[in-house]
Amino acid sequence: MLTPVEMEAFKLSLLISLASVLCNLPIAIPIAWLIGRYRFAGRALLDACVHLPLVLPPVVTGYLLLMLLGIHGPIGRWLYTTLDIRLAFTTTGAIIATAVMSFPFMVRAIRLSVEGIPPGLDEAARTLGAGPLDRFFQVTLPLILPGILAGMITAFAAGLGEFGAVITFASNIPGQTQTLPLALYTALQSPNGDVAAMRIAGLSVALGFLGLLAGEWMARALRKYYGTAAC
């Protein structure tokens, strides 16, 4: 079975990944909606910014975060001196690094479902007396729910595996920022860590499988609920 340290890493992985997904949600939905729905100046730039963590080496993303949010960075120093909040090398920091890395996955999934909303439903809702907020919550949101759930699952799974950005920005502190991949890395560094590495790798594979199956099951349930035809 898992050692206490590995158990800690397992729990921490779940916590950090889940928290990063929840942090991303309120930002990803409006941005995906904006990009998926409207054509505006700067749309391409916004889209590129969203996708940046996908193409940058994760270590670079972690380094940039350190530059911005570390206690010597412009935002990090202000947070530290005025609010006494330190992000680098903390669990919160690991959550932020994971969130930034999985953000593109979330936006992509939600945006796809925004683009898949049958055209004209918004107009129909308008003629039926629904104002802008009413339309967003009663028509748009329920229709992009499959995309939101799919995005959450993908982002959660990706978050479990995040390594480079976390180790750069939040370091590898057992019990605080040491997630499963970081624990696996530590095990590989130690002389007798082979068995531990195997255990952690096996656990990661199992988690990955579960995530994929859950996603597939959810997609199928939703397809059944909404039907395939656009109405």
């Binding site: 107009e123 308008r126 003629t127 007396g129 028509v139 729910l145 039907g227």
Partner: peptide, 20 residues
């Protein structure tokens, strides 16, 4: 007057029922 306040019922060629 905004369409949501006009009270004009509109039946579109493609029905536009809410699929959810």
């Amino acid at each position: 007057i905004r369409p949501e306040q006009r009270g004009i019922g509109y039946v579109f060629q493609d029905a536009r029922l809410f699929p959810h």
